[in-house]
Nucleic acid binder design. Structure first.
Lengths: 137, 137
DNA sequence: ATATATCCTATCTATTTAGTAGTATTTATT
DNA sequence: AATAAATACTACTAAATAGATAGGATATAT
């Protein structure tokens, strides 16, 4: 399962992509209201996305958030990894958060082989998805 | 991520499948030692698998656990759902543990559509795997 | 009777999840 | 310069989950 936080992050980014016009930033409070996300929690999420170079922010009056890159250049996997960490179902098959099994010999591990397949088919789908592909237009 | 508990469950079942001979039951302590799983924790797991009709148990001397069905009739998904619950990445796309989203219209939800694909490709792989297919032989 | 296995109830600690509260800082406008 | 309005930051909290452990009850082969 992906976390609620991650679902919020995706919805917030899609909302920003749908509402960026001219170069006006989108405010946390607008996203919170329209997407029904707790405002203070959303603040934390947006800041985290900014720290990871998905968003840029502007403080003070008329402040808010904008995508740092084009929506088609932000993949779903990138967002999911920032917010939730590994996508794989086992640490020993994770590409970005690999950790060794202590109990099994990995070369001959049948369980590992299965979850490598799951990882590959999952990434086939998720890598192809971007914030752009999730917008209305 | 699947839990450690679930990985233990799978390894324990594969161990039982590999070590069932004649009609001798396999003891918790043997599995615990050979698979390096904490014994008391493993007891809970095996009992849970028994309560869900994956295993049968025999108490007392010469007691232990046996598969209730043939190893090729126990799918990986069945075990995973018993121990960890849903396999899908979102409650609203889970086949066995469905829960409605409260914030989005499901018919038009782009996020849901993506994670339905992930679910289908994941189940394509996991439904094809059984305790038998994970054994040595 | 006894040794040995599962069964059951209760408990525990650490981590993660999902937030909330309050203050500091920055910026546009007047 | 003052003010209003936005993000930035620090700290805290409650509930759930993960990953176990402890101890006694019960069943069974010998």
């Amino acid at each position: 399962m992906i976390s609620n936080k991650c679902k919020y992050a995706i919805r917030a980014l899609v909302h920003i992509a749908n509402n960026e016009q001219d170069d006006r930033a989108v405010m946390t409070s607008d996203i919170a209201r329209e997407q029904q996300i707790p405002r203070k929690f959303l603040e934390i999420i947006l800041r985290e996305l900014r720290n990871n170079r998905i968003l840029e922010s502007k403080r003070g009056k008329d402040g808010g958030f904008r995508l740092l890159r084009a929506a088609e250049d932000i993949s779903l996997t990138e967002v999911m990894r920032i917010i939730d960490g590994p996508i794989a179902m086992l640490p020993c098959v994770s590409l970005n958060y690999y950790r060794k099994c202590d109990e099994c010999e990995e070369e001959s591990c049948e369980i590992k082989a299965v979850f490598e397949q799951v990882r590959d088919r999952t990434l086939d789908i998720l890598n192809g998805q971007t914030i752009k592909s999730l917008t209305l237009s």
